[in-house]
Amino acid sequence: EVTIKANLIFANGSTQTAEFKGTFEKATSEAYAYADTLKKDNGEYTVDVADKGYTLNAKFAG
């Protein structure tokens, strides 16, 4: 089991951190699915991958 950390950075400057656990593939998929649920209210996002894929920095356009 691994933990994927998602740093969510919103256009207004606020941030949120979420963690997803499971296999690498499952946890990564859940992190992206969570970011997708936030698109409606926060706009499209881009992701910078860090820490060999164990940290995802998602920046929302607003």
Rank of each mutant, 00 (worst) to 15 (best):
T3C: 12
S14Q: 14
F60Y: 12
A61F: 13
A35W: 14
F60I: 03
K26G: 12
G22A: 04
Y34W: 15
N42A: 12
T37N: 12
A58Y: 15
A35H: 00
Y54N: 06
V49K: 07
Y54A: 05
A11N: 08
V47R: 01
T28D: 03
K5E: 04
K21R: 13
G53H: 03
Y34I: 03
T15M: 14
Y34E: 02
E19V: 13
E25D: 11
S14G: 09
E30I: 05
Y32C: 08
N7H: 12
G43I: 02
F10E: 01
G53V: 00
T46E: 10
N7D: 02
I4F: 00
A58I: 15
K5M: 10
Q16W: 11
A6L: 15
G53Y: 01
G13E: 04
A18H: 14
K5A: 05
G43D: 02
G22S: 04
L38Q: 08
L38K: 08
K5C: 10
G43Q: 01
Y34F: 12
E44A: 10
N7W: 07
K26D: 12
F10T: 04
F10A: 03
A11Y: 08
S29R: 14
E30Y: 06
L56D: 04
K39L: 06
A31P: 00
N12W: 06
K21L: 08
T23W: 05
K39A: 12
D48P: 00
K21S: 11
F24K: 08
A18D: 04
A11W: 09
A58H: 06
F20M: 01
A31K: 00
E19N: 08
T23R: 06
I4C: 02
Y45F: 09
K59W: 14
K52I: 05
K59Q: 11
E30R: 08
D36F: 00
T17Y: 13
K59D: 05
A58W: 14
V2Y: 05
A27D: 01
K52L: 13
F10L: 10
E44R: 07
S14W: 12
F24P: 05
L38S: 04
Y34D: 02
D36Q: 06
Q16L: 15
A35I: 15
S29T: 11
K59A: 08
K52T: 07
T15H: 10
F60M: 02
A50S: 12
G13A: 05
G53F: 01
